[in-house]
Design a protein around this nucleic acid. Structure first.
Lengths: 356, 356
DNA sequence: ACCTTTTAGTAAATCGTTTTAGTAATTTTA
DNA sequence: TAAAATTACTAAAACGATTTACTAAAAGGT
């Protein structure tokens, strides 16, 4: 027969059994001690040295018995620290963001940080609103992925694939010049001179720099990327569809080319489909170079030659950089950029230009 | 010349300009009003009717001017509501989780909820720990994705592709029986009788039920899935690699078959590579049936015939179900399961069994 | 002219922790 | 044996909101 008169079965919807959560005060009452003592002991504070081991044990046992769980909200409010950051991505299902997030999480989890994710879907209103609501939720910093910064930073920001120089923002960037050298160099060395290109969408952070560095690398070799051989991805679907559509429209123009520089692997895969529907063989008739090296790249048919961008690493680095800024171990200085290196993975979608 | 003596430039590391955030008290002081009044007005509480429009305007203007942002922690603590849920997934980069998450987010954002994501990486310690720390962070409910429930629910849980019946847990499940009928039916109707199968890993929630329903569907047609033609995926890489390895080992056994039932599209893609390396053509010599219908499936070479699982929809439904339970609009009842239907997408990786 | 109602607010309690500043009892030191 | 130090705790003030219960002044009703 239970004797505590407090127990009114509060019928709260959806919740399975087990009454309301027990607070520190509840536990203190139950043990006949003050909340202060419990807090000191449970957090192993230096002031707890004077508490005898027996009392400590009583406290730990009581906590386990009553299934005490500290309320992180209350704690965070008091200590002014949430161990939470915000992550803003364009969209989750595009593979790119997921890989970066994976790296972010890996770095955060070892630091006991959590993160709130928000997708802006390229909508201007969300680009303005999401940082605000994340800040209201007291995130300590924000990692943006392939996302333009449309607000004035009031806390540490790290932007993966960001290229704008903004006070308070650290950009994690690929060495695009090197990437272009690898890509153009590879095609050039295989004898390709008329190279078609699929540019990224305007909303993609990398579109401009990629286009520029690719052009530079081409010029350096005495060739150029002909505007007549260039198409741009349209729409924000994460499917190969848009690469397919882009290549279709290029093919419709009747221009001739021996290689295609795709903005990413996804669009390369779409482009290959379009080429093959036209009766063109990859790589025999046209070489296709991807970018990113997503999981599917190695197993596509033909396996994609691609420029590998270390997405996990970039996310990981972004998180580590942010944590360093938060912990103050970077003593106050905000790196403008941190860089990562691309590599070229040569597979079956590119080959020497045919001799005919 | 600034005259407020309060302004000591607190040199906090990493933070760009702009002093400490302004609290309600700060704003109240600045306006010569009490925090109470501001709170009433800013939240448009019924008691604010007696506050004249002019004062209201003063408050709103002041809030904008000082860039006041309510502290969500404090608010949540007081009103005992966080508008936050936890999401537990095996891993982020496997495509499956990302698609589901996308659906989850879509449903949550319209309800002004945010979510904390955590990956358990199939580690037992994390399966036990993650729910606990999420609960400490006062999430109102948890969505688990393809994840075993290793704890006693004390708050509403929705498990996407969960199959255990647990008090307090709603499972969002595919109609696996229907899926098996579609899959086996399709292959059977094309004349296939010796069907190889790639089973999922033991840690995948769907492995058992899928295997069972596929066997049932086969039996119903007077055939059976021969254990000698069955292999299981090994390892937790989200790459086609493991499908490739599985198929390699099956081929090494020398058994003959005309079709392969893959656990998912990713492994189907790996399997196709292994088959082609053996000189077997897909679908001419062997038909391959995928599962999921990920973005890459339609653009693979050959395009994958696959059983579509509406992952976005499942995530969306999971979130909507959880929100309904939280809001109490489901008045307390906890649906054991909510179901979604598969469809078969016939493309180029399956064909009529050859007449030879 | 008195009572009631409305207007325009405010003080204080509260959410669940952490932390600062004590205190009373005991033990140690001089 | 008195002063100082240690031991074992606790009361109360934060953190930044929301909310309940007030109050004082003005307006309205009769």
């Amino acid at each position: 027969m239970p004797k505590n008169g407090k127990e009114e079965p509060r019928p709260k919807s959806g919740q399975p059994r087990n009454g309301d959560p027990v607070s520190l005060k509840d536990l203190a009452l139950h043990l006949g001690l003050s909340p202060t003592t419990l807090s000191l002991v449970l957090n192993d504070s230096p002031q707890a040295v004077s508490i005898p081991a027996e009392t400590k044990k009583r406290i730990f046992d009581g906590a386990r018995e009553l299934n005490y769980r500290p309320n992180y909200l209350a704690r965070s409010l008091r200590v002014q620290k949430t161990n939470t950051i915000g992550v803003i991505v364009p969209e989750l299902s595009d593979g790119y963001s997921a890989m970066v997030l994976n790296g972010v999480e890996s770095a955060l989890s070892t630091a006991e940080y959590f993160y709130l994710t928000a997708s802006h879907l390229h909508r201007e209103d969300l680009l303005e609103k999401l940082p605000r609501v994340l800040i209201e939720r007291q995130v300590e910093g924000i990692i943006a992925v392939d996302t333009p910064i449309r607000f004035t930073p009031t806390l540490p920001i790290v932007n993966v694939s960001g290229h704008e120089e903004i006070e308070g923002v650290t950009n994690v960037v690929l060495n695009h010049q090197h990437a272009a050298e690898l890509g153009i160099g590879h095609l050039y060395n295989l004898g390709h001179r008329r190279i078609a290109a699929i540019k990224g969408q305007d909303f993609s952070s990398d579109t401009v720099i990629r286009w520029q560095t690719m052009n530079d690398a081409a010029k350096k070799r005495g060739i150029s990327l002909d505007p007549a051989l260039t198409v741009q991805l349209q729409g924000d679907s994460p499917s190969p569809e848009i690469g397919y559509t882009a290549m279709k429209s290029l093919l419709a123009s009747g221009e001739r080319f021996t290689a295609v520089l795709a903005f990413n692997d996804i669009s390369a895969i779409g482009a290959i489909r379009a080429l093959e529907e036209m009766g063109l063989r990859v790589p025999a008739d046209v070489s296709v170079l991807g970018f990113d090296d997503i999981y599917a790249a190695a197993f596509h048919n033909p396996a994609l030659t691609t420029i590998r961008q270390p997405l996990f690493e970039m996310g990981n680095l972004a998180a580590r950089t942010l944590l360093a800024r938060l912990s103050g171990e970077s003593n106050g200085d905000v790196p403008k950029t941190v860089g990562v290196e691309p590599t070229i993975i040569v597979r079956q979608s590119t080959s020497r230009v045919s001799q005919t």
